[in-house]
Amino acid sequence: MEISLSVSRSTPKRHFEEFTIPLQKGMTVLDALIYAKENLDHSIAMRYSCRMAVCGSCGMKVNGRPMLACYTQISELKSNRIKVEPLDNCAIIRDLVTDFAEFFSHHKSVHPYLIRNDVKEQDNPVKEFLQKPEEVEKYLQYSYCIKCGLCYSACPTVAADKEFPGPQALAQAYRYIADSRDEGIQKRIDVIDTAHGIARCHFAGTCSSVCPKGIDPAQGIQLLRRYTLSLKR
């Protein structure tokens, strides 16, 4: 059995190229792309690394939906025609490779690390930062983020407003604010509580529906909103 793989190419101008791939049991979209690159056209550009949904490198649109190519089996797409395109809301470097500079700059802007008032103690801790299981539960799912950019690509607000941090950055802001060990809430709220910040989320929920790790960034944003509205500290 064969499938038709339609790959978005960026040179000389954006177009699609069709490849016929022999289907194997358990074949993923990434496997099909690697087959095409190894046997049919060496010039296909794509980014991948771990092949097991850990590194978040192979995010792309598969049949119009942002997905991890390594995590998507062809059998689950229920079609013999597969169309792969680069992620939306990111500049295209070449073919399926997109520029994540903007995405990572938003991520960095929310200070995605523990902030303690006592810097000396943080650098040279004398004891562990203890947490109860229920305190860990508050942010645990958000710490599973692999920064694949699928939620950023699916977000309709990011599509309209490039200054909007996006669901990934906002969910990470929540992840650290909700962490009982963190004391940097004000620093993060200063970044996200702006005219192009958290208030611009329209709760479309696409971020949560495309997350390959089952994280719910939309929920994180709503929980974070309680902090910005001073309803919760």
Partner: peptide, 9 residues
């Protein structure tokens, strides 16, 4: 005026 305050209003 923070955006969250404007949105609260």
């Amino acid at each position: 005026l923070r955006e969250s305050r404007i949105m609260l209003l």
